[in-house]
């Protein structure tokens, strides 16, 4: 379908973006890669009267190593997330998630900032960012805010962004040597949205797990931290025993939607199976 009419404006700075946004009285949408905005307008899911193109704002670009974090600009496209060596080294959950995000041509346009700001519950990057305990750098007319990923994804397509604020970058804490990472999803075809997905990381000290972080996606309205599963892993060696306990704990952590075509119990079962696979692979590489 064709898009409804709208006004298109290109912002060259953050200040200009905020001004254009407030000027539209709430009837404006930021445009990064446009690969969610454009199809949703074609489907008449939304029809804002103004699109503000923020893709050329300098603060949103670049991937750079800072003191304690890797700063990934919001405009970093999925294809760049997939290929960037700094991301592969310091934020490997993103590199591992990227091949599952849509299809190659969509990855050439979609951006990590747009993906996180949209917060689709079936989307890969939000769960990866949550698992890595990243912080989101957000700038608005009132100044800059750093929001922990745990406080960012609030509900279905709902984030902690206040209207007008721009997500400028993702800060991933640099991982210690030897951290274990795992990522996988179950989808009907490669590139489709996941039926269920898992992102996990864990540090080992003296042979036992010291800091487990386990998140799932496509299991509810937002990416979900599996705290009971984390507790089951904490302080024990990564073994078939602790993995089985973590799998069982998912019944406490998750409350998946009950669709007629995809009952909650089946989704929970897929989540258990997938968590088992991911943790077993992490056990094997340690």
């Amino acid at each position: 379908m064709k898009l409804p009419s709208f006004e298109y404006l290109r912002a060259r700075s953050l200040a200009e973006a905020w001004a254009l946004h407030s000027d539209a009285g709430g009837d404006a949408v930021y445009l990064s890669g446009g690969h969610s905005v454009v199809p949703s307008m074609a489907l008449r899911l939304q029809a804002p009267s103004r699109l503000i193109d923020i893709s050329q704002i300098a603060e949103l670009h670049g991937v750079e190593l800072q003191d304690q974090t890797l700063r990934i600009g919001a405009m970093t496209r999925h294809a760049e997330v997939l290929a960037n060596p700094l991301i592969a080294r310091h934020a490997p959950l993103l590199s591992r998630a990227a091949p599952h995000v849509a299809h190659p041509a969509i990855r050439n346009r979609g951006t990590i900032g747009g993906n996180l700001a949209l917060a689709d519950p079936a989307s890969e990057f939000p769960a990866a960012v949550l698992a890595m305990r990243a912080e989101l750098e957000v700038m608005g007319p009132e100044g800059q805010r750093m929001i922990a990923a745990d406080d960012f994804f609030l509900d279905l397509y709902e984030t902690a962004l206040i209207p007008g604020e721009v997500l400028t970058a993702i800060h991933v804490p640099l991982p210690p040597e030897g951290r274990l990472f795992g990522f996988d999803e179950i989808a009907r075809r490669r590139g489709d949205y996941a039926m269920v997905g898992v992102a996990a990381q864990a540090d080992m000290s003296d042979g036992v797990v010291s800091d487990a972080s386990v998140t799932l996606f496509s299991v509810g309205v937002a990416p979900t931290r599996a705290t009971a599963a984390q507790d089951a892993l904490e302080g024990a060696p990564l073994s078939s025993d602790s993995i089985a306990r973590a799998q069982a704990a998912l019944a406490t952590d998750l409350d998946p939607p009950d669709d007629p075509g995809f009952p909650a119990e089946r989704r929970l079962q897929l989540a258990r199976v997938l968590l088992g696979r991911v943790l077993t692979r992490m056990e094997a590489v340690q």
Partner: peptide
């Protein structure tokens, strides 16, 4: 091909 890489021309606005 847009700047050498494939993109969906239905999802890119001409102005982009």
């Amino acid at each position: 091909l847009m700047d050498g890489v494939p993109v969906h021309a239905c999802l890119v606005l001409a102005v982009q």
